[in-house]
Simulated scan of single mutants.
Amino acid sequence: MSRAEKFIVLPFKKVRGNVVPGEMRAASNAASAEKIARAMAERFVGVAAYSVQVDMESGDMSDPKVIWQSGEIADIAA
């Protein structure tokens, strides 16, 4: 099993009173992920930049770690 660290940014919005993730954006590194997240923060109820471990064979993501967050976010590990 081959793993790689990837960086993603997730905006969050409210849908029927629940905080749900929006469209995921990829980033090339942790600094880029934080920069993208900060730029998006004013437009969403919440936004977070994550570092995740990806199984390159199956595409499964696990072990999300928050790099930066603002506002309300949901637990994406659940």
Rank of each mutant, 00 (worst) to 15 (best):
V47A: 02
M61T: 15
S70K: 15
E34R: 10
S28Q: 09
A41S: 15
R25M: 14
M1P: 12
S70H: 15
K35C: 12
W68F: 09
A77I: 05
A37E: 03
M61D: 11
E34L: 05
E57D: 15
A48S: 07
I76A: 01
V15T: 02
R25L: 11
M40K: 03
K13D: 01
W68E: 09
E57V: 11
A78E: 10
M1R: 13
R25Q: 13
A27V: 07
M1Q: 09
P11Y: 14
L10D: 02
A33S: 06
D75V: 04
D75L: 12
R38F: 15
V20N: 01
A78W: 07
V45D: 12
I73N: 12
F7P: 00
S51Y: 00
W68P: 04
V19C: 03
G46C: 07
M40I: 09
L10M: 06
A49Y: 00
R16F: 06
A48G: 07
S51E: 02
K14S: 10
S62D: 13
N29W: 12
Q53G: 08
K6I: 08
I8L: 07
V45C: 08
S28L: 06
K6D: 07
M56L: 15
V20L: 03
V66T: 14
M1A: 14
S51C: 02
I36S: 03
A27P: 02
K35Q: 13
D63F: 12
A27Y: 00
S62A: 10
G46K: 02
N29A: 11
E23V: 04
K6F: 01
P21S: 10
G17N: 06
A74S: 13
I67A: 04
E72K: 09
E42V: 06
S2F: 13
V66S: 09
G71C: 12
R3L: 11
G22A: 01
M56H: 03
V15K: 10
V15M: 04
A4D: 13
K65Y: 06
W68Q: 08
A31Y: 07
S2M: 11
R43F: 10
P21H: 13
S32D: 15
I67G: 02
W68Y: 04
A37T: 04
N29G: 14
Q53S: 15
S70C: 13
M56G: 05
N18A: 11
R16G: 03
K65D: 04
